[in-house]
């Protein structure tokens, strides 16, 4: 590949973001592609918003993607795509899980304001706003695809499969799948491979 390829992964603490970044990092190592990531650990994991920055390619540079510089963003939860939107370059790709996880503070506000039947901040709203930055948004119902593949916990692998299907993505699908096969529990390998392919398929349908 030429130049640098920047990714931002976002989601909610506990969704398996670190596994995703480990898999991509290991796949880079196997392909001899320099990579550096900036991760969040500690307090931010407790059901809070988290992000991982991932940078591939030659050169000396830091662990953080500068604003407006990410080629692709993988959002494991839809509102978390919007939360880190400043990192995406114009016309960059977003792989966005359609899942919404409502924070207790938002729920509490509804209850306090006697608005229990009013809608939460919606997927439509997220969609409208992120599409003002880029038309290249792939929405993936990752939970549904992961369940169909046989493992509800493989949402992250579905989304990774989708990212690997993007035009210009610097890693080979086979390498990434090999790495996944090596890190997930043995009895879930088959389901994880199916989950990967489901994500890849969804991406190829959209951008292929």
């Amino acid at each position: 590949m030429n130049g640098r390829y920047n990714m931002v992964l976002s989601g909610v603490g506990g969704q398996g973001l670190m596994l995703l970044s480990n898999v991509i990092g290991t796949a880079c190592a196997q392909e001899g592609l320099p990579v550096i990531t900036g991760e969040q650990h500690g307090l931010s994991q407790r059901s809070g918003s988290i992000s991982v920055h991932l940078r591939m390619g030659e050169g000396t540079y830091g662990p953080l993607v500068p604003p407006g510089d990410a080629d692709v963003m993988i959002a494991m939860e839809a509102t978390e795509a919007l939360r880190y939107i400043e990192f995406l370059r114009d016309d960059g790709y977003i792989i966005m899980n359609t899942r919404l996880m409502h924070h207790p503070l938002e729920t509490m506000r509804h209850v306090r304001e006697d608005a229990a039947t009013e809608p939460y901040f919606s997927l439509d709203e997220v969609r409208k706003r992120v599409r003002s930055v880029t038309p290249n948004v792939l929405e993936v119902d990752a939970l549904h695809l992961a369940e169909a593949a046989g493992n509800a916990r493989a949402e992250n692998v579905v989304l990774l499969g989708a990212a690997c299907g993007l035009p210009g993505f610097p890693l080979k699908k086979e390498t990434v799948k090999d790495v996944i096969g090596g890190v997930v529990p043995e009895k879930t390998i088959d389901a994880n491979m199916k989950a990967f392919d489901a994500g890849d398929g969804a991406c190829c349908d959209a951008f292929g």
Binding site: E80, I85, F121
Partner: peptide
């Protein structure tokens, strides 16, 4: 500041986005 435009656009896009602070686990 080439980042100012990106940051201010993002800020306006995020208006009303619910916060997601760390909280006690289930």
């Amino acid at each position: 500041d080439s980042y100012a435009d990106v940051m201010s656009r993002a800020e306006s896009l995020k208006e009303g986005l619910p916060v997601r602070s760390p909280i006690f686990c289930p």
